[in-house]
Amino acid sequence: MTSEKFCTKCGSELSMGDSFCTKCGNPVSPDLPEEKNTMKRQQRSPFWYLLPIFLGVLGGVAAYLILKNNDYQKAKRSLFLGIILTLIPVFIVISFEVVYGTQNPFYVIASGSMIPVLEVYDIVVIQGHVPFEEIEVDDIIVFNHPSGHDRVIVHRVASIIDDNPKTIRTKGDANPASIPGTDFPITQDEYIGKVSYVIPQAGYVTQLLKPPMNYLLYLIPLAIIFGILGFKHQKYKKSG
């Protein structure tokens, strides 16, 4: 079908399919098909989906804003992943409170005061549901330092000093004697829980979570991700 009904030169009427005017011979320009947009939409790197893994809900929001115009479904999944990964620690803390009776049932042994029973970097798992009134001599307990509650101590119960209110004295197995102000007096206020399990030497992992190693664990993967994204962006600009 032509784009003209009349010849642009002489004004004669044209028939469908004419390639030139039958009166004056003027060429007839055919209708050009609508140009299709062959430009491909910019492909977003799958590395954007790692943002929620490292940054939780903030990374999920960032990935959502970046991906929503390219792939809305993937953008929603990224946001959902970020929310889920942020809620998981909250769920774990609540679960610990229910199962162990304390928000933090794991403690890393930091000194040699309980050698050979507990070595440095062993992890003890405590049970906070065990009432202080049921604690007996030879139990290993976790408690706050009596003077100021500024640090946590793991020692063995050496004796019951008083029953009303219950007050106990502890002692480190490797120490020659109980230390006043540290091992006693221990009351309900200082008590955290009773040691139930020991995970040998698992505390070495916690060294990776201390500065500056914890920063490197986050910064190195993020630097790799953004480096790859930057490379892909430059490659896309050159190909465009």
Rank of each mutant, 00 (worst) to 15 (best):
P146Q: 07
T182N: 03
T2K: 02
G17Q: 02
P176W: 08
I168K: 01
I220P: 08
A202K: 06
G240R: 14
L65P: 01
N70R: 11
A63W: 00
I126W: 07
F184D: 14
R169S: 13
K171V: 15
A63I: 06
R77E: 11
V205E: 09
L118N: 04
P46F: 05
F226K: 04
P185D: 04
P27T: 00
Q234N: 15
G17T: 00
L32G: 04
T182M: 12
N164T: 13
I192R: 02
P27H: 00
E190F: 05
I228D: 02
P27S: 04
N70D: 10
A63E: 11
K23N: 14
H155E: 06
Q42H: 08
D18H: 00
I160F: 01
I140C: 09
F231S: 13
L208T: 11
T182A: 07
L55W: 07
Y191I: 05
A110E: 11
A177L: 06
H149P: 04
Q43H: 14
I88M: 09
E97L: 13
R77I: 05
L87R: 07
A223W: 01
L222C: 12
N164S: 14
K194F: 04
L219V: 14
V130N: 09
M213C: 12
L219Y: 11
C10Y: 02
F132T: 10
E4Q: 08
S78I: 00
G60N: 08
F54H: 09
Y107G: 14
I83R: 15
K68F: 01
L87F: 12
S147W: 10
I53C: 10
D189H: 02
A202G: 15
S147K: 15
G17K: 05
Y204C: 09
E4C: 01
R156H: 07
V120A: 07
I126K: 10
F54Q: 02
E97H: 10
I66Q: 14
K74T: 04
L118M: 09
